[in-house]
Design a protein around this nucleic acid. Structure first.
Length: 217
DNA sequence: AACTTGGGCAACCGCGTTCAC
DNA sequence: GGTGAACGCGGTTGCCCAAGT
């Protein structure tokens, strides 16, 4: 559909912004591909959506990131990796694009993180093994039953402590993951409700922490 | 003053998922 | 259930501008 049109690319000008804002004011967000037809704006739907979501929306906060925001992003990135939309969802007023750019240009340097590197919660790490694949398979088939058997007790608690994460952060993490449809691939809970298993995003490396022990940290 | 370089960020692209028919 | 359109996400690109030479 969009291939039939001559859509403009590159930076938006104030006139285009005005047209888009007027459209959203009248029709609300969504139906982005109708904008070109309705307004004559020579922008594809994806470009309109991106411009609104990342710049024009009144919910978008402009300006520098605060220390608190930096701290929150660093913690969330430790927990979630490059899942920018999930992270941005926990940083009021910031978009996934803003968070991603801020991480890549400021925070990764500040922390000495290789851009290509994948941040993981737990150290030390072990290479994937047949055993861990088996665990992964078991978790996938019955996460709540198998999670309590899957890891190295205390490692995640140690790691969270090293990352200056509090028990409240952990509870927050639980909330984040529970609200994410595929949470079970990232964070799993033992069936007794007091344990945690964390298979990393990139290879199954499994850790377990007893929350009662951790509470004493 | 002219040119080069590098950082920052807006925007694009490709792909996976969801939705409507 | 199949298909195409729309949407959403994360990686990448490329433009702009300030700092350095």
């Amino acid at each position: 559909m969009e291939g039939r049109h001559e859509y403009k690319k590159g930076l938006w000008n104030s006139q285009e912004d005005k047209i888009l804002m007027e459209y959203v004011k009248q029709h609300g967000v969504g139906k982005w591909n109708r904008i070109a037809k309705v307004t004559g704006l020579k922008r594809c739907g994806k470009s309109c959506r991106m411009r609104w979501m990342n710049y024009l929306s009144p919910n978008v906060k402009r300006g520098d990131f605060s220390e608190e925001e930096d701290d929150l992003i660093i913690r969330l990135h430790n927990l979630l990796g490059n899942r920018w939309s999930l992270i941005a969802g926990r940083v009021p007023g910031r978009t996934d694009n803003q968070v991603k750019n801020h991480w890549n240009t400021h925070l990764s340097k500040k922390l000495g993180v290789n851009r290509k590197g994948k941040t993981k919660v737990c150290q030390p790490q072990k290479p994937p093994s047949t055993e861990s694949n088996e665990i992964a398979s078991n978790i996938a088939s019955n996460p709540f039953k198998e999670a309590s058997n899957c890891g190295q007790e205390g490692e995640i608690g140690k790691s969270l402590q090293e990352n200056s994460l509090s028990r409240e952060d952990f509870i927050g993490m639980q909330e984040i993951m529970m609200s994410d449809d595929d949470f079970e691939t990232n964070l799993l809970f033992a069936n007794n409700g007091v344990g945690l298993c964390y298979p990393s995003f990139f290879s199954f490396q499994d850790y377990f922490v007893d929350l009662d022990d951790w509470a004493a940290l």
